[in-house]
């Protein structure tokens, strides 16, 4: 079985927050969305997803409420809060800076 790349450490929170910018989603939906959007490259382990969600809830970056799904099942939907949006912006800009920095290093290394 081909090995899928692991998530970059520290990026899970950001991915979750980003996923929630479009619409409130339940845990499964978040996992699915990340998987689809990344063309099956990124898989979010349930083992990391739920602890991460609890952490985000605790920080107040997301809110949770129980609602009905289209299939009429009760599920907990997570919504991005204003604080969460701010946090996302912060994390995105940090992440971009880092990617850019890594890119520069790699490019430099190739030129040598």
């Amino acid at each position: 079985m081909a090995r899928k790349p692991d998530l970059l450490p520290g990026t899970l929170d950001m991915l979750i927050l980003k996923t929630l910018t479009r619409a409130p989603l339940h845990g499964y939906g978040i996992a699915l969305s990340i998987k689809r959007l990344s063309d099956d490259v990124l898989t979010v382990e349930e083992g990391s997803l739920y602890p991460a969600l609890q952490r985000l809830l605790l920080q107040g970056w997301v809110k949770a409420e129980w609602k009905m799904t289209e299939t009429n099942r009760r599920a907990r939907f997570y919504t991005l809060t204003a604080a969460g949006r701010k946090q996302l912006g912060l994390e995105l800009s940090e992440f971009e800076q880092m990617i850019a920095a890594i890119g520069r290093v790699l490019k430099d290394a190739q030129e040598v």
Partner: peptide, 12 residues
């Protein structure tokens, strides 16, 4: 709540 959420996930 956590139990229910996970049961839901597994079902899906």
């Amino acid at each position: 709540e956590l139990d229910e959420e996970m049961a839901f996930h597994q079902e899906q």
